[in-house]
Structures are given as structure tokens and as C-alpha cells.
Design a protein around this nucleic acid. Sequence first.
DNA 1: CATATGTCCTGAGAGC
DNA 2: TGCTCTCAGGACATAT
Length: 285
Amino acid sequence: MPELPEVETMRRGIEAAQGAIVADILAGTCSRRPISIRPPLPALRRRLVGKQIRLIHRLGKRVVLSFDNDRHLVIEPRMTGLISVGELPTQDHLRLRIVLSSSPIDEILFWDRRGLGVVSLLDEPHLRILREQKLGPDALAITPDRLREQLQRSRRPIKVGLLDQHAIAGIGNLYASEILHHARIHPGTPCYKITRRQWPTIHSMMIQVLSDAIEHEGSTLSDGTYRNTLNNSGDYQNHHLVYDRQGERCLTCQRAKIERIVQAQRSTFFCPQCQSRRKTSSVVA
DNA sequence: CATATGTCCTGAGAGC
DNA sequence: TGCTCTCAGGACATAT
């Protein structure tokens, strides 16, 4: 679930640890099969204990801690992973502890209920490959023209295209539906049929939705899994216009009911009236 | 090359 | 009430 806004909220929650020294790295208390840690814990500890965190940044849906030995710890929450500085949703499922010194934050915790998350230490060339080859431009940094160039030749539906991290990094299932509703574009529209006028609309709605969601510290869905680093819920779920609202009245047109369809094995939500296939898009005021 | 599908995982909720 | 079943979707491996 964590997408760009949730991951950015996690990053901001540990940003104050820039400059800190790693005192130790410990396994969590979770008794289940550990999450994927590369290299395994003893080697990770040898490489990072005593090193300084120079920069805490974000690559798409990943948080990256960059150290003074040119190594980069990439934290991928995937479905249910969380970065915390203390309180946890439950005591179970704590997967990794990074103990710090010379820092206002005592430790950075990685908690992951389903254990699909991945933590990996990359050297400079591998980080470069991740940034420049595996991931497209960040959704908050991409230009409108580049967004169009990345997707305009694809035959896939626009909703599926927006989820392709090779094309554009950071958008996940929830925000793809919200962005297309704000842009008033039907999620099933093939990318190559999106018009010249529609691409800048998608771009500006994308920036608006993601920025608003960051201000609200992300979306905590009904399962309550997502939390910020202080174990507080996000607030953007209260601003969703379509996600998980199937059968409910559209908040934009006040008339049609929100529909749910499945695209690429994932739920998509949209308003059949506001996001009609036929109508040329016009921006929600 | 582009696109589609299967897989990993846990726990909430549905249905009986 | 308690059991079984389905589903949620991140990224990647494999298939077409």
C-alpha cells in the first residue's frame, strides 16, 4: 500500500537522523521468516556500524539512507512495511532495528506485517542502475512533456500505465484512481488515445493529488496498517473521491455512483459520469 | 521489445 | 461462535 505520499511521510519522519552514526543493527523480534535483507544481517552490520548517515532521500516508493562509505540502504515497504521511530502498530512483525548515536532519533525501526518488504544495501553503481534504469522519473519531478513521452505509445489503459514504475516512479493503485478522477479521464482509456490536451491535465492533477496527500501524511485504509513514523494514522483517506467508494455517490457530480472495475488484477475506482469515455476532459475546478 | 499473468505474504472480513 | 475462504496490491519472475 505505501505509495509516494506514504513513503515521503516516512522519509520526513526520520530525516532528523541525517548526520547520525550507526551504533548497531539488530534483527527485530518477529519470530516469523525474516524479510529479505541483502546482504544478510552480519554482513550488513559489518558494513554499516560506525558509518554516518549523510542523506535520507526517496526513490519512488523506496526510502534510501546514504552513508559516508558510498553505500546506500534501500528500504522498500511494498505492501505493509512501515518505518517507525518508536511506537509500532503491534509488537509483532518488527523486522529490523537500526540503532543510532549522535542523533535526536534513537533508532529507526522497520516493521512489516506481511513480510513482503525488502531492505538492501547497494553500492554506488547499483543505486545508479536503480535510479536511472529500473525506475522512471519521480512523479513529483517529472515534466508534463516527459510524462507524455513516457506513456503515449503504450497500448495499455492509462490506469495501468501510471502504475508502471519503469515509466514513472511513485504512483500506486490508490493514487492512480484518484488522479484520473481529478483529471476526469476514464481509467480504461488506452495511453495512445490520451490527447495532447489531456496529458498536462493528468500531470497537474497528479502533482496536486500527491502533494495534498503528503500534506495529510498519506492514507490509512480500513485495515489501519499504514502509520507514520510516530504511529499516527494518515488523514488523506478522508479526502478520497473514488478509492474504495464503489456504490457510493460521486462527490464531484453528486449524481452517479462510483464503480469498481478490475484492471491488471487490481481494483480501479471511477465515476462513470465524470470520467466518461466519450467526453473530452475538463479539469475539476 | 511490450504486455500479461503468477507469485510471495498475513489478517480482516464474508459466508456458512 | 468458529471455521474456511477470498481478497488486498507492492515488485519481480516467467510466459506469451
